[in-house]
Amino acid sequence: SSQSQGISSSSTSTMPNSSQSSHSSSGTLSSLETVSTQELYSIPEDQEPEDQEPEEPTPAPWARLWALQDGFANLECVNDNYWFGRDKSCEYCFDEPLLKRTDKYRTYSKKHFRIFREVGPKNSYIAYIEDHSGNGTFVNTELVGKGKRRPLNNNSEIALSLSRNKVFVFFDLTVDDQSVYPKALRDEYIMSKTLGSGACGEVKLAFERKTCKKVAIKIISKRKFAIGSAREADPALNVETEIEILKKLNHPCIIKIKNFFDAEDYYIVLELMEGGELFDKVVGNKRLKEATCKLYFYQMLLAVQYLHENGIIHRDLKPENVLLSSQEEDCLIKITDFGHSKILGETSLMRTLCGTPTYLAPEVLVSVGTAGYNRAVDCWSLGVILFICLSGYPPFSEHRTQVSLKDQITSGKYNFIPEVWAEVSEKALDLVKKLLVVDPKARFTTEEALRHPWLQDEDMKRKFQDLLSEENESTALPQVLAQPSTSRKRPREGEAEGAETTKRPAVCAAVL
């Protein structure tokens, strides 16, 4: 046999249950609850290399294929790409003598399909299967379609040439079993990697079954959420508030809700932002270029202005709740996480202390139980975000031990490091100062900020419009641009040419 590394010779191994799959997660993409704000000051410096380099560890398999027929071997997927077919160049070659004697062998292509993985959001991997055969590759009886790919989820059954000719079961060793999710959700989405997690739940990458488009699904544990919100009269209202707010909003710089499922837990389906959180971008770069800050901040102002015009105060604006559309420097941003939002009543007064301390406005800290506050709290938070983006460190921090965090904020005395700000323009610093004003009545509004000289930049605004146009074009394009080929190089076993392929839609398939 010419099988590559990772293939075992026996096809009769006992199949494990899916609970053996491991679970991976990374930083929070968007969480309903406010958790302790991640610290920006503690960015690790590059460490000196050791005298002796450690040995390379043996790579762990990321997936496993269990053979369902004699003549096929099990495969431990270690590499990122595997070709399957009769050709000797394939990493998994159909060359077992037992297999060659079967009637089905002649229906398999020289290069029938490939399984591979690509880097997705949060640097996690996504597994795909890609059909290159004349007679078809099927996943859970659905045709992939020649020249098309679809994501592979845990426990997928792979069939060759005929939908009933099941050859492998695919085990993704990095994700959960699909069966743990409600059927209504599974009918519409293929669940994938964990993108982030918080005290009350997690955010998962998923794929729409009909279109193969990526989405983010925010899962909120009702049990954990009820415990964490025990002081509230009705904890469920917080989730329902977020859903109702998101459904009503329609702005290019605000995250869109696509679906909602109320089962044992809450499942909020949101558009996916491939670039992750602004927080991670700031930490990764230490600070952002001023031109990049301007492009992002302009969009934040437009989003918050839209919220305020619609009578909504976000109340928890922070870099973790600003998501980026891509890994590119120039990209769209979207505001997310409306769990603490407040729809303005007639009095415009709110007395609930919520939000993240580092970003809270002075009037929030001094008015607990005594007075109210209004939309100006969001403008203060925007000032803190702009400060961080321009400088790479927070204006107020618990680690300045000589003054408490509350006193720093209520006095408006931010930590100004001259040598850092020497590289920032006077106009940018002036806008920061106009937003970090203790008196909410004297603080800049979103309208005033948008009129500030720093943002009178036609090149930046043109760039934003171009990015918007690109997004609109990409969302308007159909996901499947061509029909699967019906040509046949070899006959199917026991049926006429093209008899099955043309009847089945290529579900969740995307043209390369």
Rank of each mutant, 00 (worst) to 15 (best):
E244L: 10
K247M: 13
L249H: 11
L249E: 07
P252F: 11
P252G: 01
I254Q: 04
I254V: 15
K256N: 09
K258Y: 05
K258P: 02
N259G: 05
F260G: 12
F260D: 08
F261R: 05
F261H: 10
E264W: 03
D265F: 04
Y267R: 07
V269M: 04
L270K: 01
E271A: 14
L272N: 15
L272C: 12
L272P: 11
M273I: 09
D280V: 12
K281N: 12
V282P: 03
V283D: 01
V283W: 03
V283F: 03
N285W: 14
N285I: 10
L288R: 05
K289M: 07
T292S: 06
C293G: 10
L295Q: 09
Y296V: 09
Y296A: 06
Y298H: 11
Y298I: 15
L302C: 11
L302R: 08
L302M: 11
A303F: 01
V304Y: 01
V304M: 10
Q305E: 13
Y306C: 06
H308S: 03
H308L: 02
E309D: 14
N310S: 05
I312V: 10
I312K: 00
I313T: 10
R315C: 03
D316F: 00
S325T: 08
S326D: 15
Q327L: 05
E328V: 07
E329Q: 12
D330F: 14
C331Q: 02
I333Y: 01
I333A: 05
I335Y: 04
T336Q: 00
F338P: 02
F338L: 02
H340S: 02
S341W: 01
I343R: 01
L344F: 10
L344R: 12
T347Y: 14
S348E: 09
M350L: 14
M350G: 12
R351A: 06
T352A: 03
G355E: 05
P357L: 14
P357H: 03
T358Q: 08
Y359R: 01
L365M: 06
V366P: 15
G369N: 14
A371N: 05
G372L: 11
Y373L: 01
N374S: 11
R375S: 12
A376Y: 14
C379K: 02
S381C: 15
F387G: 01
F387V: 04
Y393A: 00
S397T: 09
R400W: 09
L405Q: 01
Q408N: 15
I409P: 00
I409Y: 01
I409T: 01
G412A: 06
K413Q: 14
K413L: 12
Y414F: 01
N415R: 05
N415A: 05
I417P: 03
P418H: 08
A422P: 00
V424I: 12
V424R: 15
V424G: 07
L429E: 07
L431M: 11
V432A: 05
K434T: 04
V437T: 15
P440Q: 05
A442T: 08
R443K: 00
F444Q: 05
F444M: 15
T445A: 13
E447H: 06
E448V: 03
L455H: 09
Q456D: 15
E458D: 10
D459S: 05
R462N: 15
R462L: 13
F464S: 11
L467P: 06
L467F: 08
E470S: 01
S474R: 07
S474Q: 07
T475S: 14
P478H: 06
V480P: 14
L481V: 14
L481I: 10
Q483V: 12
P484A: 07
P484N: 15
T486L: 07
S487Y: 00
K489Q: 08
K489M: 07
G494W: 13
E495D: 15
A496D: 08
A496N: 07
A499E: 13
R504V: 03
P505K: 04
C508D: 11
A510S: 07
V511S: 12
